[in-house]
Nucleic acid binder design. Structure first.
Lengths: 192, 192
DNA sequence: TAGCATTGTTGAAAATTCTAAACGGTTGGA
DNA sequence: TCCAACCGTTTAGAATTTTCAACAATGCTA
């Protein structure tokens, strides 16, 4: 709010912004279109910047993620050459009210990995529908505890404990404790 | 960013939001239309929520203020019944890079006054074109110093000093010092 | 009070966005 | 290897936004 000119920089590229957000949340154009009540074609055109969506359309689409307009435009995706990142500068993404993550190096091009600083509130859960995607991932717990399910195995991990698995094996994360759980995780290749 | 559902609340009413911002910055529909390269009719329709502007149009309009999309959607205009406001919760508005103000009670309906906590950076100036509008205003300096011009009079005010005048007399504010100037001011009736 | 300037609002036409349906490309399983 | 399922893209037409121009309302000045 304070410094208008500062944040005025990358507001143009709505298309890339939407595509990035959609990929971060791992939704296809068609699925998002279905949730939002628009057509997949519309989303495609918007992501290619071949049209400039009306606020009402964009709102509907973001509701399907869900993400507020304010958060959408506040997302920090400036590309930079930086090597160091202050905690406060990391782009923060929320999944529902209980899971949030700060992204390390998400604005670096052609990178091999995606590092995340994740926080799971007590009871937070990636949900019954198991996650599955290309690549590999690993992580190490830094606070609280985390129940990790990979394939048929489940294990509760405590600070210092870690995991590493191929991401195409169905997996799920859940915080069974009553304090927030923090962990540092890495995906390779980055899926967004 | 953290808590998506929180900020998802009042994102709908783009029209009121735009009208409020425009009035805060004291621009007419036609003047803003001219700056933005759109027609005044378009702005009128948008402010009445009779159309949902495309992002490109909204962007052009906000550029004329100027205000970023992110700031526009981040503006806090929830109406509330609150009596107390934490400093961090006050809606903050920037005029260029040098003048900013936090609004007290801007979300209260049918109020008689608008209180502002204003900050003028060194050299900040409301500009050669004098301000003029309905109502009365007064203020008291709390830090730094402020050169206030009202009609043919000019005076530099220091902490503890104050002013009070009818707002239809042309007036202007400027920080001639080399430290930020802070003051508390009140307009009555509120012009936005 | 009359006249002028300025403000916000409207209606029809032009321009843009959105939908519906089909297309080509990729992946995974039989 | 073929097929089915799914992905994102594209095109013509429907729907919506934006322009242009005229209108009514308000405030200011003579």
């Amino acid at each position: 709010m304070l410094d208008t000119p500062r944040s005025a920089a990358p507001a143009e590229d709505i298309g890339s912004r939407l595509r990035l957000v959609r990929q971060i949340y791992r939704v296809t154009q068609r699925e998002l279109a279905r949730r939002a009540g628009v057509t997949n074609g519309a989303i495609s055109l918007i992501e290619q910047n071949r049209v400039s969506p009306s606020i009402s359309s964009l709102k509907k689409i973001l509701d399907g993620i869900p993400l507020s307009l304010a958060d959408f435009f506040t997302l920090n995706l400036e590309s930079s050459e930086n090597v160091f990142f202050q905690a406060a500068d990391l782009t923060e993404i929320a999944f529902g009210e209980r899971i949030s993550m700060r992204m390390v190096g998400n604005n670096i091009k052609n990178r091999a990995m995606q590092m995340l600083h994740e926080t799971y509130q007590p009871g937070a859960d990636t949900g019954e529908e198991m996650l599955r995607h290309q690549g590999e991932e690993c992580g190490i717990i830094t606070a609280g505890c985390l129940a990790v399910t990979v394939g048929t195995q489940e294990q509760v991990l405590y600070p210092g404990d870690a995991y590493y698995f191929r991401s195409d094996i169905p997996h799920r994360f859940r915080n069974p404790g009553d304090t927030p759980c923090e962990l540092i995780s890495v995906n390779s290749p980055p899926s967004f």
